[in-house]
Design a binder for these strands. Structure first.
Lengths: 210, 210
DNA sequence: ATATTTTACTTAACGGTGTAAAGTTAATTA
DNA sequence: TAATTAACTTTACACCGTTAAGTAAAATAT
């Protein structure tokens, strides 16, 4: 019994080590430079050993993808105590962009890169953490609507649109499409866009304008 | 004279053929499946011949990237006659999303894929068409502000934010991140989000609300 | 008219990728 | 003690982008 549990533990440890190494390479050098062979070399196993622990490369990045969503939900959990839904909505927007700025490679993997999505379609993988994050936004917007904000709007479509707004900012930054912006505004562009998005929220309910 | 001009013409023709073939493969099978070797096979030349016409793979996709921007500007040119800037802004948003839906692979190349950007940084390539497209948006927003819309906002930052909004919608769709949305709303999600964005514009200036 | 150079292209090769099949060695079970 | 299983490696396949060296024909120079 103790031997077989030790073996199981060791298997689990190697799996974790592969994932940890993939994560390191990935954060240091990005997705493209993280190859099965690179990972294998760093953990001092042959490349094919990795296939005993993960179905394929997409499977590895799907696991990291999940880690990313768990991390994002940690960012969000800190906002659960914000009782006013409109304030929470603004806080979510800021926090989302912060997450992207602070975890660029993760963000790319979660919302831009195609690799982890291949894996989801393959093996109907649990997408729970992703739904939780989006649910937090949708729920907040539903509460906003109940309080009289965004009158008559569909909460899910609005949630998607709000997500699109912040995702747009993050992905244009991460994928380097901001060269058209003047040098002056390119400095801290994400922050400026974030402030602009919040300003848009505020202007949408007329009574809030002083 | 006639011989050398013919030769020049033939060189130009082969360059165009490479580009045309790359475009076909790229639209049919996407970026990943479009390799130098695939292109070469289809035009019945050796792979290395392509390097006599293009610096590298990024260079080919940078050329297609430019084609994409020319096409986008054609979409936009049709809106130049819309005299009211606020109407034009709404039309630009619709048109931008239409462009993305109708030219998915091009859109991906222009605003998501990293390949063409590598090439821009390498050889400070002319980015004129990209600037023209963004300039059209910025100009329209500047006119809006002059007419009393979006009072007190910075036109360039607002232009970037509007771009982020529509880009967010398009890129989440193209990169398949919309599974979290309920089946009901996932149908024509881009259209719904586009309508929502326009609704947001309208709610931003209080007097327009009936 | 012959020799040289240039042009346009190809062959071969390097170093990299993901991944599958077959082989090996040691531990476990029969 | 023999058969089986587990864990891992070696080898190999089919790709990829790209470079260096080679070739044959055309253009130019002598």
């Amino acid at each position: 019994m103790t031997i077989s549990t030790r073996k199981e533990r060791q298997k689990e440890e190697l799996r974790a080590k592969i994932l940890q190494t993939a994560k390191e390479l990935f954060i240091e050098h990005g997705f493209e430079q993280t190859s099965i062979r690179n990972i294998a070399e760093r953990i001092e196993y042959s490349p094919t050993t990795i296939y005993l622990y993960f179905k394929d490369k997409d499977d590895i990045f799907h696991a990291l993808h999940l880690e990313g969503f768990i991390l994002l939900n940690q960012y969000f959990r800190a906002l659960e105590h914000v009782s006013d839904p409109f304030e929470r909505l603004k806080a979510i927007s800021k926090s989302y962009i912060n997450f992207a700025v602070e975890n660029g490679e993760f963000y790319d993997l979660m919302f831009i890169n195609r690799s982890p999505i291949n894996s989801i379609n393959k093996e109907d993988a649990k997408w729970e953490e992703g739904k939780r994050a989006f649910g937090f936004l949708t729920g907040t917007i539903t509460e906003c609507i109940e309080k009289g904000y965004f009158k008559g709007m569909n909460s899910e479509v609005l949630a998607f649109t709000v997500w699109s707004m912040v995702h747009g900012v993050c992905s244009l930054e991460i994928r380097n499409r901001c060269d058209v912006i003047s040098e002056e505004n390119r400095q801290d562009l994400s922050d400026k866009a974030c402030a602009m998005i919040i300003e848009i929220f505020e202007r949408m309910h007329p009574k809030a304008i002083q």
